[in-house]
């Protein structure tokens, strides 16, 4: 081994060690608050209250519970609406903002998009409770025009998936617009200029150049939004309490898991439902990853 090669190895080793140091705090937190709880719920899901091995009985018990399928259905409908809204509206809004000429307008709009997302989840839902109550809502005329004179008219079961999707969009979309905006910025200017010279208009550029080039960011957004969406909890939980129970406290799958743990004292069943959600998230994520070719190198 020559001296140069040795130096290079030592330098490489130092780099690797620095990398490890940077990652360490994250790994510790991930282990404590991510991995350990997941392992614990796997343990819970396959054992009974006394700690004995229970096979799949917790899964069958919770899946045959009369509230399970309706909850699953609620979340599925919500996800379809929410993901469709997210992919269409966020992408179009980002493209529009990106094409604005004035730097100042762009900055103001980016901030405006971001602000609702800066509100913590529960407090933004609280805000929506007022928006949705025709007695106090600033958009009361609109609600009344749509035939909802009272809060209970607004929150009928048919409206709920849309309402939750709107709340989620309002709180979450701004952040994604910023992320996609950043992704658009990474497209080399000469590519755009070349397109222009070839005669592509703004729409053609967006469809044929920009969208394909930020495809991975969009897939990434959908994966995370899907995972967050299956965990629907705060919105229905708060609306349930605000509606004095007319919106049931077992509307979503996560709420059902909560009911299992805390009103039925059945932590094992609760863990089984949590694992159901994990499996659903993993399966659909891998679909997204393969279909969206997330890890392909260009």
């Amino acid at each position: 081994m020559t001296a140069t090669a040795g130096n290079r190895t030592r330098a490489g080793f130092r780099q690797v060690r620095a990398g490890h140091l940077f990652v360490l705090p994250y790994v510790v937190l991930l282990a404590l608050f991510g991995v350990v709880p997941v392992c614990y719920s796997v343990y819970l899901a396959f054992t009974d209250a006394g700690g004995g091995f229970a096979g799949f009985s917790n899964f069958t018990r919770t899946a045959t519970d009369y509230r399970f399928l309706p909850a699953l259905g609620h979340v599925a409908v919500y996800l379809v609406i929410w993901l469709a809204m997210l992919s269409v509206l966020v992408v179009s809004l980002t493209l529009v903002v990106h094409q604005l000429a004035s730097r100042r307008t762009k900055a103001v709009i980016r901030l405006a998009y971001y602000i609702p997302g800066a509100l913590a989840g529960a407090s933004s839902v609280l805000l929506w409770l007022f928006v949705l109550d025709p007695t106090v809502s600033p958009v009361a005329p609109l609600l009344k025009a749509m035939g909802s004179d009272h809060f209970t008219d607004v929150i009928t079961p048919g409206h709920l998936p849309v309402i939750f999707a709107i709340i989620a969009f309002w709180t979450g979309a701004g952040g994604w617009i910023l992320v996609l905006y950043g992704a658009l910025n990474t497209i080399p200017a000469d590519v755009i200029v070349a397109a222009k010279m070839d005669g592509a208009g703004r729409i053609r550029t967006a469809l044929s150049i920009q969208l394909p080039m930020i495809r991975k960011s969009i897939t990434y957004m959908l994966i995370l939004a899907f995972a967050a969406g299956t965990q629907l909890f705060v919105e229905p939980q708060l609306i349930s309490q605000a509606s004095f129970g007319v919106v049931p406290n077992d509307y979503s799958v996560n709420q059902l898991a909560y009911q299992f743990a805390f009103t039925q004292n059945d932590f094992n069943g609760s863990a089984a439902i949590a694992l159901d959600l994990l499996v659903i998230a993993l399966v659909s994520t891998s679909l997204f990853v393969t279909r969206g070719r997330l890890f392909d190198t260009d």
């Binding site: 404590l32 608050f33 350990v36 709880p37 614990y40 719920s41 819970l44 529960a122 839902v125 609280l126 409770l129 007022f130 909890f233 705060v234 939980q237 708060l238 309490q241 605000a242 909560y258 743990a261 805390f262 932590f267």
Partner: peptide
């Protein structure tokens, strides 16, 4: 309404607490 929501926020925190404690 704030009171109700505060209660719910508390329970939401409790879920997180539950996971941590359980672990």
């Amino acid at each position: 309404r704030a009171g109700r929501v505060r209660g719910a926020a508390l329970t939401a925190t409790a879920v997180i607490g539950a996971l941590t404690l359980a672990a």
